[in-house]
Amino acid sequence: MSILDAVMWSVHVGFAVLWTGSVLFVALAVVPPATRGDVGSDALAAVVGRLRWISRIAALAFLATGGHMAGTLYTVESLTGTGRGHLVLTMLALWFVITGLVEVASGKLLDGLETGKLREPARDAKPFFYAAAGLSVGLVLTAGLLASPSVL
């Protein structure tokens, strides 16, 4: 493994931890009190806006680092024809779906906050945040399988 490979791996994992942790935090610690009206609108908008930016910046980092790792570790045949390749493709699909769910959820919530509402937009966004959180757990489990050399 080269220094570049180690840097790419580290940046990839670092952003994965930041992103999935942020999704889980917002879904489990921020949205429930927001649906009860226990969070201020400005604070909620700031947290959700930050999640949206983390998600977008992480997407760029994942494209660069994941693209490097896939390009150096896999061929089309090994991505489509091996268990490890299937795990990589599963992670890619989960990443796209989670990113879409975060964008939809944060858009619903922020649009509602702009109209002066709090509980209703939080309730509308809640299923999308919960789905993103659940899939984030699946993403982490898939990454764990991929990181274990003896699994496949």
Rank of each mutant, 00 (worst) to 15 (best):
L73R: 12
G144W: 03
T82M: 10
G112I: 05
S136D: 07
V30H: 01
G14E: 02
L73K: 11
V39R: 04
L24Q: 02
M91C: 09
E77K: 09
P121Q: 04
G112F: 05
F62P: 05
L110H: 02
V76Q: 10
L89A: 12
L89C: 09
T72H: 07
V76G: 01
A147E: 00
D124C: 00
A133K: 03
G67I: 14
F62S: 13
E77L: 06
I54S: 05
A122Q: 03
L152Q: 05
G85M: 02
V88E: 06
G14W: 00
R123C: 01
L92T: 13
V7I: 15
D38R: 14
S150K: 12
S136E: 10
I57L: 13
A93V: 14
T80M: 08
L73F: 06
L87R: 00
G14M: 00
I54T: 10
S22I: 09
S2F: 02
G83R: 03
I54P: 01
T75D: 08
F128D: 10
L113H: 01
T72S: 07
P127V: 14
E120P: 01
L152S: 13
M8S: 08
H68Y: 14
L94Q: 10
A59W: 03
G67P: 04
P127H: 12
L146G: 06
W53V: 15
R52V: 11
R123I: 09
P32C: 06
G112R: 00
L141S: 06
L145C: 10
E77W: 00
G138F: 04
K117H: 14
G112Q: 04
A143Y: 01
R56V: 09
T80D: 10
G81H: 10
G37I: 09
R123F: 03
L89G: 05
D124Y: 01
A143Q: 05
A131N: 04
A125N: 11
I54H: 04
V30S: 01
